[in-house]
Amino acid sequence: MKKVILSVAIMGAFLLSCENDSSTEFNTEIEAQEVQVDMSDFTLYVDSDDLAGKSANSFEKCVSMKNLEYRLAKNKGLEKKMYDIEYNTRKAIALKNQGKGKPGGGSGGGGTTPSIYEGTITIPVVINIIEQFAGQVTQNQINSQIRILNEDFQNNNTNTSSVPSEFSGLVADVDVTFVLGSVNRITNTKASWGTNDAMKIPSQGGIAPTDATRNLNLWVCEIGGGILGYAQFPGGSNATDGVVIGTDFFGETNNGGVYGKGRTATHEVGHWLNLRHIWGDGRCNRDDFVADTPTSDAPNYNCPSYPTVNCRSTDMTMNYMDYVQDDCMYMFTSGQNDRMRALFVAGGSKEGFVN
Results as ranks from 00 to 15, higher is better:
Ile142Pro: 00
Gly348Ala: 06
Ser296Lys: 04
Phe59Lys: 14
Ser161Trp: 05
Gly235Cys: 08
Ser115Glu: 07
Thr308Ala: 09
Ile127Arg: 02
Val324Cys: 15
Gly104Cys: 11
Glu34Thr: 11
Leu180Glu: 13
Ala212Lys: 00
Asp241Ile: 05
Tyr259Phe: 15
Thr295Phe: 03
Met329Lys: 15
Arg185Gly: 04
Leu228Trp: 02
Thr24His: 11
Asn184Trp: 04
Ala191Gly: 02
Leu228Lys: 07
Thr210Cys: 02
Leu275Asn: 11
Gly169Leu: 10
Asp197Arg: 12
Val258Trp: 07
Asp41Ala: 14
Phe289Ile: 11
Ala346Glu: 01
Arg341His: 12
Gly111Thr: 08
Val354His: 01
Thr113Trp: 06
Val258Met: 12
Phe353Met: 03
Ile127Lys: 03
Gly226Thr: 11
Ala32His: 11
Gly104Pro: 08
Glu118Cys: 06
Ser55Gly: 15
Ile201Val: 15
Gly235Leu: 05
Ser107Lys: 03
Ser192Tyr: 01
Pro103Asp: 04
Gly282Gln: 02
Thr158Lys: 10
Glu25Ser: 15
Gly99Ala: 11
Gly260Ala: 11
Leu15Gly: 02
Ala342Leu: 04
His277Trp: 05
Gly110Tyr: 13
Tyr83Lys: 12
Tyr323His: 13
Glu34Gly: 02
Thr120Met: 11
Arg71Asp: 15
Leu180Phe: 00
Val258Asp: 13
Val345Gln: 01
Cys284Phe: 09
Lys74Ser: 12
Glu252Thr: 14
Pro103Met: 09
Pro234Val: 07
Leu72Val: 07
Thr240Arg: 07
Met329Arg: 15
Val171Tyr: 01
Ala198Pro: 04
Val179Asn: 09
Asp41Thr: 13
Glu151Met: 14
Gly12Gln: 01
Asp211Met: 02
Gly205Phe: 10
Thr314Leu: 02
Ile121Thr: 05
Ala265Glu: 08
Ser182Val: 06
Thr89Pro: 00
Val37Asp: 01
Ile148His: 00
Ile130Val: 13
Arg312Leu: 12
Gly135Ala: 11
Gly101Met: 08
Ser305Gly: 15
Asn300Lys: 10
Glu252Ile: 15
Asn143Thr: 12
Gly335Phe: 00
Ala191Gln: 14
Ile121Pro: 01
Ala265Cys: 09
Pro124Ser: 09
Pro304Asn: 08
Thr138Val: 12
Ser115Cys: 06
Ile10Ser: 08
Ser349Met: 02
Gln36Asn: 14
